[in-house]
Amino acid sequence: MLRLIAVRLIWAIPLLLAASLITFVLVALAPGDAARTILGATATQAQVDALRESLGLNQPLWLQYLQWLGNALRGDLGDSLVSRQPVTELIASRLPVTLSLAIGATVVCAVIGIVLGTVSATRGRVGSGVTDGVAVLGIALPNFWVGIVLVAVFSVWLGLLPATGYVAFAKSPELWARSLVLPVVTLAVGGVTLIAKQTRDAMRETLGRDFIDSLRADGWSERRIVWRHGLRNAAIPIVTGIGVFFTGLLGGTVLVENVFAMPGLGGAAVTAAVGHDLPLIQGIVLTYCVIVIVVNLVVDVLYAWLDPKVRVPR
């Protein structure tokens, strides 16, 4: 197990370097100028050139990247070009919002999707019809539209939940939970479909194996067979689906954060891209890459726990 984790972490190093280099080059070559954004359209070219020089933006691109990389290896991601705040502080203040949304939506999808998929696999046509109906709705309804409808019903009409904003857990756990309900449900609508169908297909394949027939012949109850043996043997593709859904949410939170006015990393990434704020974009991309690496590592560890055959790295 330790060897598996070590190999995955070693492979993460070139991935982080490649992601940071590609992001740096693409953002640097994209149209726009951070100095012009900071000074405004009325600034003279001389003022823009002076600010570019003070920010180091007039240096060769390779030199800018090497300077950023050297500072990043020491734990310094630099300062935002627009707000002049440390990038690490900006990310630290917004990361809990995005993680709360992503983790909350993933938990909701995993619980509902696994239950729905298992019922679908064991209840024949009725269960399959329910799952297919949920799948159609989940695919057809855009997240932003679902969010607007939820706000109109539960905030404006019924007045049960806040429409916008985010409350930190340390400030009030109750208000934190209430502020997450609508955005988490909005994000989870599409994910339930993915997990439910993945669970249904995996459970059907597992319940058709010979060892399941042997357990039935030995007198095991159907419930125990399904939830204890069937679900565990079908867990690997389900875990894969959950991991894919979670990493996909990192980009999907952008629209939901805007709909519910939540100060997450998605909104910060959009603002940084518009302002050509290279250090902030680099920091956000690096943060996302680390999260993806950690999630993939957790999935690999779960694989090894569920199936010992994958413990030897290939």
Rank of each mutant, 00 (worst) to 15 (best):
A135V: 13
L77G: 00
R36F: 06
N296D: 14
F260N: 00
L194D: 01
A43N: 06
V312P: 02
L95M: 14
V27S: 08
T199G: 07
A202E: 06
T247N: 14
I148G: 01
P237V: 08
N58Y: 03
V292F: 14
Q198W: 00
L101I: 04
A135P: 03
G104Q: 09
G275Q: 11
V295D: 04
L39Q: 08
R228K: 14
G251L: 07
I293S: 06
G248F: 06
R209I: 03
A30E: 08
G124S: 12
A41M: 14
G104C: 11
G113E: 06
M203N: 06
L280Q: 02
A268H: 01
A152T: 11
W62Q: 10
G127Y: 04
L158K: 07
H276Y: 05
P86V: 03
G70W: 03
L175T: 07
R311D: 05
I13K: 02
R94H: 04
G32D: 10
S179D: 04
T240A: 13
P173M: 11
F260D: 01
W62Y: 14
F154W: 11
D76S: 09
L180M: 15
D307T: 12
A92G: 09
L306Y: 10
V119T: 09
V134S: 08
I293N: 05
V156R: 08
A269F: 13
R123H: 12
T253Y: 05
P279K: 06
A30R: 09
A202H: 02
F246L: 15
T42L: 12
L194Q: 12
L207M: 13
D49T: 10
V301A: 14
G165H: 10
E257N: 08
P263M: 09
I13W: 07
L141H: 01
G138P: 04
L255V: 14
L265V: 12
V82G: 01
C289I: 12
R74K: 15
R228G: 07
G267T: 12
F211K: 08
V97G: 03
V239T: 12
V108L: 15
A110S: 13
P279Y: 05
A72M: 08
G159V: 03
V149Q: 10
V192L: 15
F245I: 08
V189Q: 03
A72D: 01
L55E: 03
V146P: 01
V151H: 00
A135D: 08
P308E: 10
S172P: 00
R224L: 13
V312S: 15
L77K: 01
V27C: 11
R228I: 09
G230Q: 07
A269Y: 07
K197R: 14
V167G: 04
R200W: 04
L137G: 15
A261P: 01
R74Y: 00
V119I: 13
T23Q: 07
